[in-house]
Structures are given as C-alpha cells and as structure tokens.
Design a protein around this nucleic acid. Structure first.
Lengths: 560, 560
DNA sequence: GTGTCGGCAACAGGCCGACAA
DNA sequence: TTGTCGGCCTGTTGCCGACAC
C-alpha cells in the first residue's frame, strides 16, 4: 500500500502548452551540461577564444538563413574575449544552446607575434568530476511504447534514486524530478519482476507524450549535490528539428545574431552575440590556446589521428583516420582559413561524416588510451613560434583606396536583380538600427522610389546602362526617399573615399541622370566607367556637375 | 454491409494543424453567408455606404486596440464607395469576417442636398432565397459527448442529404461535406433506432474534436446548387475567442486597418480597408439608402419599435422596445452623430442589451408579421427631404485659418507629457508609412533627441516656458533627428499657414533657442506669445532670425 | 421527433511476470 | 541485467435500441 498515493492524475495537467519564450534561461547549469553531452565545453566569461565566422556561416546555412551575398566577409579567425555566456533551453524540444557574447580583441592578435601565449582559460571543464550521480539511457522501443513503462538500469537506480526497502516483495516509491525548465515530473518507481528490476511506471507515459520522445532519444537523470533529482532530454541528433517549431527562441536568437550584424560588430569592435548550439553543428568557437596549439603543428599527409565524437545514442565514441592533405576549403572567400583545412580519409567509411576536419578537433592516434580528459591530450606543439601569420587584413577602414575588383565576385549573385540606378544585394538585413542605413531604388512598376536598407559594410552595385556594373562597399551613406527629386549623397567618413550620386530627376525624359562619384560639392566622372586601369582610382578630375548648396542631416551631407 | 467502407480511419489524419494564414480567403460565398447568419448583409463592390467611424472605434476598443488620443477625428458619417469585398474565415475557429475596402466619396455628400437619392444597392441580399437546402442545428450535450454521434433533424436530413433506401432495415450511406476552408469531412449517415431517426456516427467525433466544438455551438449543412454538400460552424456568440488564438489573421487585418490609418485615408480620399465581423460587433457600415431612409425619419419618444437580432443559438429573433429620447452619445467627439443616437427602453430587460440603438437598426413595431425580408420593411420616410445636414466639416484643408481653440480639448490629454520644446500626443501611431511623419523631441534623460512619429492631422503641443501651451494640428511637417543641430522645418502645403521651429543648438548654455513661426527663410515671433488678440494671427512681422540656406527633402523645406 | 440513457463490443493504456538474449 | 512479449485488468470510445418528453 505504500507509494500508492493519488498517482492517477500524475503529470496530467493537460492545459494548453503555454511556452514562455520570454525567459528561456536554464535553471541548472549542471543539468544544462548534462543535456549538452560529454563532448561539449563552453567558454567562460573572460576567456580568450577564436571565433570562426566560416563555421558560424556554415551552421546558419543549415538553418536556411538568408544568403549573405554582399556582406564584406571578416577574416577567417577572429580573436575575441568572451564577455558573457547565457544558457538556454528550447521550450518544446528542450534542446540546449548558449548565447555567447564576444568582442573582437585586437590585443590577442598582437600577442600572436610574441613567443609565449597565455593560457588563461580552462580548455573545457571536466564535467564528469562535478556530476557524479547521473546516468543517461537511450530509450528503447519498450520504453517509449504505450504498452509499458521505463526500464531503469540497476546501477542508475541505485546511484540516483533514493534507496528502496528491498525486504518488501515489491518495494516502490514516488519520485519527483525537475526538468530543465523547472517543471516537476512525478513517477512511480517500483522494483519488481522476475528477475527483479527497477521500473518507472505511472507517470512515465505522460512524460514521453508531453515531450514527444521516441525510441532513440535519450533521457538522463541527475542527482545534484543539493539532493534534488533532475532529468533531461537528449534528442537523437540525426533528427531534424521537429516541424512545428518554426518560431523557436533559438531561431529568434539566431536572427538576433544575424551574420551581417556579427560582421559589423567585428569591425566596430563592439559586443556581438552568437547562438552556440554545439550538439547541432560545427564548433565555431575554439579556446584561444587550443587553437594556437593546433595551429602551430604540422599535419603531414599520412598522419593518423583520433576524433572523438558523440554517437546518435549519446555515447562518447572515437573514430580514426588518416590525413590526406591540407588546403583551404574556400580559397576565394576565406583564404588561409584553418576551418576544415585538413582533408582526411576515415578508416570506417560513413557518408554522414565530413571529409574535412579542423586541426583543433583531432588528437594523435592513440589506440591504447580509452579515454582522456578531452582536448588536453591534444597534439603537442611542434614549435612554440607561430608558423602562420594570423593577423588579418583589418586595415580596410584605415586605407583610402578600396579594392573594387575583390568585390566583383558578388556580381553573379546580383544578376537578375538589376534595376535602374542603385541596386543592392538581395540579402535581407536585420539587426541594430544604428548600423543600418537606408537605400533607395527606383521601383520599375510605378516609377516611384522604394526605400531599402543596407548594412554598413555591405556591397552594393551601381548599375545603369552607361557603364559596366560597379560593385562597392557601403561605408557610410544614405539616400533619402522622395517622390519628386532624388537627393545625392556623399560619404563623409574620415577618409572621404567615395560617394555615389546622381543629379537630376529620374523620369521618362531623363532616364539616366548624370551620375558619378561625389566629393565635396562636385560630382566627378565615375573612374570605373573608364576602363583604363591607370585611371581606375578616385583622383582629382574635372567635375561633371556641381551642386549649389548642401544640407547636413544625420551626420551626412546632402547636395542640392 | 453497405456503407461500411473503411470508416475507421476517417477524418483521422492527425498531423500537426498547419494553419495557413497566408490565404484565408473563403471558397464558398454561399457557405460564408450561411456561417455569418441570417442577420448579416454585406455591401457589394460599387455600393454606396455610410461608414461610421464611431462604431468602428467602439468595436476596436473591445479588441483592446491602442488608444486613439490625439487623432483628429473624422466626421461621424463618412459616405463611401465600396471598392472591394473579400471574405475570410479564421483558421482554427472558422469565424467568418470580411475585409471591406472603402473610399470616401464626396459626390455622395453633395447628393444629400438634392431631392432624390439613388438606390443603386440592394440593401442586403435575401439570403434564404438563394440557399434553399440548408439547415443549422445547435449542438446538444449528446451531440458533443464522446458517447454517441450526431442526431440529424429529419427534415434536414431529407432536405440536404442524398436519399436513402428506406426499404432496408438500417439504410446508411457515406457522406462527404466540405468546410469553409475546403477541407472534406466524411461521416457515416445511418437511419436507425426505434423510433427511427437519422444519425451521423463514424467520423462525427473527429469533427467535433478537431474543431473543438462544444454544446451550444451550431453546425450547419448546406447542399449547394452544384450538388456539393458543405458544412459550417457557428460558434456560440457569448463565448470569447478561444485563448490560444492571439495571432489570428483577423487580428492581423484589424491592425492593418488601424483607426489612425483609416482616418488618414478618409482625409486623403484613398482606399482603406476595414475588417468587418458582423457577428461579433456593431454594424458600422450601413447601406447608403438605408441610412438615408432612417435618418429622414422622426423618432418621437414613446414610439414603439422592433429590433431583429440573432440569439445565442443562432436563430433569428426580435425584441421590442420603446423610444425614450434622442441625443448624442458623445457630444464632444462626435457631435451630431446618428450612431446609437436613440435612447430606448426594452420591453424585456436584458443587461447585455445596449440601451441605445442606431436609427437604421430598428423597424416599426409590428407584432403581427412574424418574419419580413430584412431591412426593407423599415420605417417609411416621413419626408423625402433631408431634415439634417450631414455634410461634414471637411473644409479644414481648404481654409487658411486654423481653429486652435477647438483643439484645446486635447490639452488635458497631453498634460503630464510636457517636456521642453516640441511635444506630441501620447498616441502610438501605426499604419501606412506614407501617412506618417517623424517628429523629434528632446530626451530629458540624456539631452539627446529622440525621434517620434506623428500622423498627419494629429495634434501637437508646442510648450516651452516662454508662452502658454499652444496646440496645433500637424498639417505637414517633419523634424529631423540629429545629435548636433536641430533642423527647423516649415510647412509647405499650398497654404503656408504656419510652421514651428527654433534656431540654435539646445544645450546647457542655450536651453531656450530662439523659437517662433517659420515662413520662407525667416523665423517670426510666435504670435501666440503675445496675448493681445489683435495680434494673435500670423501676419507680417519683423523676423527674429533668418536662415542662410535651405534644403528640400520629402517635399519639405529645412532651414539651416 | 429527438434528447438522453443503459447495454455492449472494441480498443487502447498500462501493470504484471515469463522468457530469452 | 534488461528488452520484448503475452496475459490481464481497466477506462474510453462509440454503435445500438429503449424510453420519455
């Protein structure tokens, strides 16, 4: 009769699922790490890390994020300080992710040239040591069927659950476990059967149904130091995020950390947030010293290596392979990038496995040691001195000449989008208002002007019938929507590199107003119209038109 | 054995409910009207109607829409042409509503002075004549319980369903019926029991569950002229919209037809859309001739009348009452409005019933005739000549003098919002970008400037320490946010009535920059600062300051 | 005519030990 | 040690006519 307290209505408050997207922050750090899995290490506040925008982008593309054509790409390795780490869990799926706040730190780049580098961060906390009473079980068909309950592994039950009175014939108890959102689930825990075993019966199917768990997913129980029993979920990784979660809070955060915004923040050295879901994608944030260690090594073709990973059933495995070569995966956009720079051949073929790895992912091949302490038994540096110069080309803001030709690679993307006058890349810009500027383009349908927004740093194409398409990077400019008369604009940044503008009203009689580059009060002929390379720079020429007056607004100058 | 086709898995494709908000347009006009109920008549494209913004506002307020303080209210009766009518149905609730596109038509106002008015529209189509084979039944407890099926009224089954072979002992058939979204539902229709009756069994509970129908709701079946059987839902009206439908498409459309946008469109004589849900609110669109007929009548106190309405169980009823008086419901905001201008006393007291009605809602008290053909047996006009002049005060745009005093009633609303320099009403402006202009006000927290938006036609208060508060209506103006130097602005409408502006930077040293009224390049002393009534108009005076240059943007002039 | 009920059959949910891997 | 199965009990769904309003 013991333990048979009103278990009929357990976990059964079947009201509408009011998912609160407002504060999806996680209540237990321990549980978050347990759900994230053994291979996951998070940087801590203050750590030095290397942010790999290439990997970030690769991940975002798997989320069907908008194209980033036209964004001026940052260098492949961005050295950053972690200013904040916030843990989240997706309501609905319980998928864990973290929002890592980073700020580009050029001090770290300068240290690269020096002999020794600091090791201020712990390259991955040893999670197991701090969470002793925990177990994780991949759900079987029996566990998830409506026919029965959950079969608890004996060691797990003895380790995590309160002790039972085994003198009874069928000892049982009522368990309470708290999930990552703080929701409490109740289960009947009974020790019965022949041979005897631990089972969770009443309450279990409600948990399965509410969380839409299927066999292959894993649940984990964790008895904290505070004595509280917690449980978490690790969904099978090979599954896509369940349809019906389009407006997830992770998606929200992803949008917030839109890549264009990130790029902008890197250049401005302001804090940016990235949504970091290590279970679901590439690890594009690497501890500083781990990156340096791996980067200072040679990876000769033929070298054997280990790669530790988590299998679909949430267990820690390793696979071995051989390095076949080393090359840039995208030499056009990311020259010199270490991201997946190593080409490998796996000992066991698996179509789902990438045939490229990043240096910091792998270890020496060591068939003897079954388990090490993570990334610390990594390749020891061949030389303390850096063999590669990672200092990126951050000088774009400081130079006065702009490399237009480099930007021409966006031309293909923009084809088909060409309309009279100004054009801009098709990427949808979202993010901070401060970093956005407005751009106008003529609407061919009604001859009015539609305003668009262009992010600072983004490429635009100036493309009318008078000259070949000219791709430029938008430094600082604004065009004002007006239905009567386009207003010209001149970039007024410290280095008055260029400004695009045209004079005269665009209408049927005058489809091609005078256009060119603005500087001061004058409109100069566009140097790129003249294909003579000697003239393809912005220099003092005779102006083709001059404005009478000017007007300063928003910190920009409008010529009239 | 007949009719026993695989009915077990009927209506059972229990995938996620993928509600498509994209095109919630209704597939059957007939079904829409059936769901809307017998009291509903919709105007047609091209019809002349009277739009009553007061009623629209009353409805929006029940939807918790933002306050409209500060909006310049239109006249109470706006004569319009219907340019489009689109029918919708709420996915999830199947609630029907319509989007009516209107454009203010001043031709209709001019006709008011003439002797006869056209009757170009049908004052409500006689729905019953065109939909013969239809029935509507309010669901009983038995109909909605899991215990059984749906008991079909005999006449209804014989009228709408295909004939059965009554020679059989238990004749049955499989029915297919299409709902308002085009979804097909399958039911087993059987004639059995003692006494024999028509029942819908298999498939019925799925329909009840999927649509979350409860006893008190009504379902209707309708056999169209095309032979297709359709079914619809009329939820019990006394119920609030089920929680969990916050982002309804009707709500979306309501936002689109924000009242401020509507007001703006009325003044600009552009097309505006209103979301018209006649089941759920006041009828604020009245056929032109119906409005005129009712308005031309006397409604003496003591007169008895009928009002037809739909009861909660979706049947057509009428209630009677006596007119007790006639007065404006809101003489401050809507003087002379016919909206709910009649005060009434009902014969049967009902707290839920309004004690005011609009003239076009009621009929002569006629206890004999049980049912007429809608609004056509309305009060016959006492006189064909109009007794009231409905021509509104639309001349605001054409006069050069502005009635400031009239606007002072907004002063109270604006108190407590006063800050240095420009102020504006606290109303949150939403809607079309075209009709919005930006306004800036100093932020007292950090001495920077915050930009706000003011709708054309909205009142603002110019309120600094130098003179009494001055309330003005914004005709056409824009202030540009800049952190360095406020830019002055002058209204440049056809009648350059006034412009507010100030010169000089607002900072600690210069907390009160020169302010006054702008005209051309000059800043004139504010005539309202001088309380001498003889000078309280905009006249030629000595300018207190003059600008050097100007800049035209957006059709406005900025002085520098 | 039709709303509600009891009867009853089918089925799903869920607790149990048997059995075997 | 534990995954899966058959047995078995129970609650729910849903089709049927009885009965009464």
């Amino acid at each position: 009769m013991c333990g048979l307290i009103d278990l009929n209505t357990i976990n059964n408050d079947s009201g509408e699922v009011t998912t609160s997207f407002s504060t999806p922050v996680v209540c237990s750090l321990e549980l978050w790490h347990a759900c994230a899995g053994p291979r996951i290490s998070l940087p801590e506040k203050g750590n030095a890390v290397v942010y790999l925008p290439q990997g970030h982008l690769e991940l975002q593309r798997t989320y069907n994020s908008p194209a980033i054509a036209g964004v001026h790409l940052p260098p492949p390795h961005v050295f950053c300080r972690v200013t904040d780490v916030k843990l989240y869990s997706e309501p609905g799926t319980d998928e864990v992710f973290a929002r890592v706040s980073l700020v580009h730190d050029s001090q770290l780049e300068k240290k690269l040239g020096e002999t020794e580098v600091e090791e201020d961060d712990n390259g991955g906390t040893d999670e197991k040591a701090s969470t002793p009473h925990m177990f994780c079980k991949t759900l079987t068909a029996s566990d998830t069927s409506t026919h029965g309950g959950f079969s608890v592994p004996r060691r797990a039950a003895e380790d995590c659950f309160p002790p039972l009175d085994y003198r009874q014939q069928r000892p049982s108890q009522e368990l309470e476990a708290e999930d990552i959102h703080g929701t409490v689930w109740k289960f009947r825990h009974i020790f019965r059967g022949q041979p005897r075993r631990h089972l969770l019966t009443t309450g279990w199917s409600a948990f399965i149904n509410k969380n839409k768990l299927v066999s292959g997913d894993a649940v984990l129980f964790l008895r904290g130091d505070d004595g509280v029993l917690r449980l978490g979920v690790r969904r099978s990784v090979h599954l896509k995020p369940p349809s019906g979660f389009p407006a997830t809070s992770a998606g929200q955060l992803l949008r917030d950390s839109s890549f264009t915004t990130v790029v902008n923040s890197i250049y401005q050295k302001t804090v940016f947030n990235v949504c970091y879901n290590p279970r679901r994608g590439s690890k594009f944030i690497v501890p500083y010293h781990q990156f340096l260690k791996s980067a200072s090594n040679n990876f000769p073709p033929g070298m054997r290596f280990n790669l530790r990973f988590e299998t679909e059933d949430a267990t820690d495995r390793r696979c071995t392979g051989i390095i076949t070569g080393s090359s840039d995966i995208d030499p056009v956009n990311w020259p010199g990038s270490k991201w997946r720079c190593l080409m490998v051949k796996w000992d066991v073929v698996d179509v789902s496995r990438h045939d490229r790895v990043s240096p910091w992912e792998i270890e020496y091949h060591n068939p003897g040691s079954s388990s090490g302490s993570g990334s610390d038994n990594i390749l020891s540096p061949v030389s303390k001195r850096m063999k590669t110069d990672f200092r990126p080309q951050f000088q774009a803001h400081e130079g006065t000449s702009l490399d237009f030709n480099k930007c021409l690679r966006f031309q293909k993307v923009l084809q088909g989008q060409e309309i009279f006058g100004y054009n801009h890349s098709p990427s949808e810009v979202v993010g901070s208002r401060n970093s956005m500027i407005s751009l106008l383009r003529p609407d061919p349908r009604n001859r009015a002007f539609r305003s668009s927004e262009v992010l600072q740093g983004q490429e635009i194409v100036y493309n009318n019938s008078m000259h070949p398409p000219l791709v430029m990077r938008f430094q600082n400019a604004i065009l004002q929507p007006t239905y009567s008369r386009p207003v010209n604009v001149v970039n007024e940044s410290r280095h008055p590199a260029f400004g695009l503008g045209y004079l005269g009203q665009h209408n049927d009689n005058n489809p091609n107003p005078v256009s060119g580059l603005f500087k001061e009060k004058s409109l100069y002929p566009n140097p790129n119209m003249n294909l003579n390379p000697k003239q393809s720079h912005i220099g003092p020429q005779e102006p083709v038109a001059t404005c009478r007056s000017s007007c300063r607004l928003f910190g920009f100058t409008f010529w009239l």
